[in-house]
């Protein structure tokens, strides 16, 4: 609990030191632009305003490049990091603003590839491979499968309208503002450069960690998956048994 307490304390102090000069001004403009743009760009009834929202989002993106460039100066962040991060942000925005579910799923794949790039830059190679195998290779293919099976000739109402766009945008960007304030205003705190241990991301290191320090966690995860599988099989079986009498008769 002391970690959380100190974090709250730091946040409060950061909020106290909040000033609208230099970086912070840019950041506030970025947040307002982004929130407004996203709200307008989300699919809904504001048909004519969507291009405006997109334009605002593009402007916010350009602003973000400046913010990031300023932030990265002196921290020796590789340019790939910024590239992957921007691609990930772009993909994430498109996931929620696109009206066609298949495109949303594809942008999710792009998001995962971009995040994989970020992980590789942090030498977390095993995590990167696992992310691609599990998310891009299995989960999203299943998503696509379901989306394609459920596709309709016209846009479904739940695809054409975002649910609670205003509340979502405000909540998301307030959260983003808090995190960004932590990163930019108190750079010595959570924003400190992480020390990357080169060998920490290899298969050997991850495997050893998982099977020694985190053995309980991995056993619990395994149990949870097993329970899920048993449940799925049980549900599927019962439905099959129920459906046979109705379909069995021939008139």
């Amino acid at each position: 609990m002391p970690g959380i307490a100190s974090w709250v304390e730091r946040s409060v102090r950061a909020a106290g030191e909040w000033n609208l000069n230099g970086m912070s001004t840019l950041l506030v403009i970025f947040l307002v632009l982004g929130a407004t743009g996203l709200f307008l760009a989300l699919p809904g009834t504001r048909g004519g305003w969507r291009p405006v929202g997109m334009a605002l989002l593009v402007a916010a993106g350009i602003l973000l490049v400046f913010v990031l460039a300023d932030f990265a100066l002196g921290r020796e962040l590789p340019i790939w990091f910024g590239g992957c991060a921007l691609v990930a942000l772009f993909a994430a925005t498109r996931v929620i603003t696109h009206t066609k579910p298949v495109y949303s799923a594809l942008y999710f794949v792009l998001l995962i590839v971009a995040v994989t790039g970020l992980l590789l830059l942090m030498s977390a190679e095993f995590l990167a491979a696992a992310l691609v195998i599990v998310y891009a290779g299995a989960i999203l293919v299943t998503y696509l499968f379901v989306i394609m099976l459920a596709q309709q000739a016209r846009l479904a109402p739940y695809d054409a309208r975002a649910r609670e766009p205003f509340v979502g945008c405000v909540a998301g960007f307030v959260l983003l503002a808090i995190i960004a304030a932590q990163l930019l205003v108190a750079p010595s705190g959570v924003g400190a450069e992480p020390t990357v241990e080169e060998a920490a991301g290899t298969v050997e290191a991850v495997g050893t960690l998982l099977l020694t320090d985190y053995i309980i966690a991995i056993q619990l995860a395994g149990l949870l998956l097993l329970a899920g599988m048993v449940g799925a099989i049980a549900i599927a079986r019962r439905q099959a048994a129920d459906s046979t009498p109705q379909n069995g008769g021939v008139d």
Partner: peptide, 25 residues
């Protein structure tokens, strides 16, 4: 020379399905 080696192969192989699925869709 990746230290994830064969896992990379699996990851790339799992992406291979997208070409076919999207072509079909």
């Amino acid at each position: 020379s990746l230290n994830i080696g064969i896992l990379y192969m699996l990851a790339v192989g799992s992406l291979g399905v997208y070409g076919i699925v999207l072509g079909g869709y």
